[in-house]
């Protein structure tokens, strides 16, 4: 009978797990080969169109007319014209308000609310409401757009319901176009946030919330100081995803208001489309698309930096 025992792990010696990580983090050419197809796809489908857009924005390419047959290089003319265009700052402002209103505030808050309530409510209710909410998200965008148009137009459902209680509703699509599209987009995209938060909330260990309850923390305090900080990584990821999705929303706005009245709901995608395709000025539309790209990059950078500060994805 031996009395030799395995020596206790020496903290100075790196544990097995870390040895794996160290080996795995060496980037050799051989290890990079399996990545090539993915990188190739990214280059073709992501970088390619961006390069094309940049190149296109430096020409006067059009859908018809002489510039369709022989597009010419015009340097930064499109950008000079764009930055002198009074519609651009309006469009950027509308886009920011639209994104903040429907994604950052609307979908996130509503999604979180639904996720929290589902945990507290009955299964049947949760199931039914869940199906309804997800259906809105799963509908093709054009169908969702028509539904929103029918709901919010001057003689639509919302005004019909309001008139039942004696309120004469305004013509939402004409008087309050930005609010109308924010409402429509919030309705449409909440399911995504709701599902993400439901999954995230399931991850919060019940012991922590229970001990907080024992310590006397009310529901709101528990939510604010325990639950939310624990899923903060998910919140940021969700914010990033919904922001980028919302930045590119086009069909919904186009069908509901066509960017109108005038330019009052022309977010950047709508502005780019009407310039590129309604007027046929592809070069100019490309310039607007580059601005949209820059805006998206700004949002993404903000999130990634905040995420890093908070210590990585949850």
């Amino acid at each position: 009978m031996t009395t030799t025992l395995a020596p206790p792990p020496d903290p100075a010696v790196p544990a097995r797990r870390r040895a794996h990580t160290r080996v795995g983090s060496r980037a050799t050419p051989a290890r990079a080969v399996p990545l090539l197809p993915a990188v190739g796809l990214l280059l073709v489908f992501l970088a390619g169109p961006i390069v094309w857009a940049v190149a296109g924005s430096l020409t006067d390419r059009a859908l018809t007319g002489v510039s369709a047959a022989k597009p010419e290089f015009v340097g930064l003319d499109n950008f000079t014209r764009l930055f002198a265009d009074p519609v651009l700052p309006l469009s950027v402002l509308l886009t920011v308000v639209f994104v903040v209103g429907s994604a950052i505030i609307g979908q996130n808050v509503l999604g979180m609310l639904l996720a929290v309530l589902f945990r507290a409510g009955s299964r049947v209710v949760a199931g039914t409401v869940g199906v309804i909410v997800v259906t809105a998200w799963v509908l093709p965008e054009i169908v969702a757009a028509f539904v929103s148009y029918a709901f919010l137009s001057a003689d639509g459902t919302l005004n019909g319901v309001l008139s039942l209680v004696g309120i004469q509703g305004p013509n939402w699509l004409y008087s309050l176009p930005l609010l109308a599209i924010i409402l429509a987009n919030t309705w449409r995209g909440t399911a995504f946030s709701m599902m993400i938060y439901r999954a995230a909330l399931d991850d919060v260990p019940p012991e922590v919330t229970e001990s907080a309850m024992i310590d006397g923390a009310g529901t709101w305090k528990r939510l604010r100081f325990i639950t939310l900080p624990m899923i903060s990584g998910t919140i940021f990821t969700n914010l990033l995803l919904t922001t980028l999705q919302t930045l590119s929303v086009f069909t919904l706005i186009w069908v509901m208001t066509k960017g109108g009245p005038g330019d009052l709901s022309s977010t950047l995608p709508v502005f780019a489309y009407s310039q590129a395709f309604s007027f046929g000025d592809i070069g100019y539309g490309n310039a607007i698309a580059i601005v949209m790209l820059a805006l998206g990059a700004v949002f993404s950078l903000a999130y990634v930096v905040s995420l890093r500060r908070r210590g990585g994805v949850g």
Binding site: F192, I196, A199, A200, D202, D203, G233, T237
Partner: peptide
């Protein structure tokens, strides 16, 4: 893990 799975499967 579940969040990752959720996001991955959605993506």
């Amino acid at each position: 893990m579940r969040i990752r799975t959720a996001i991955t499967s959605i993506a």
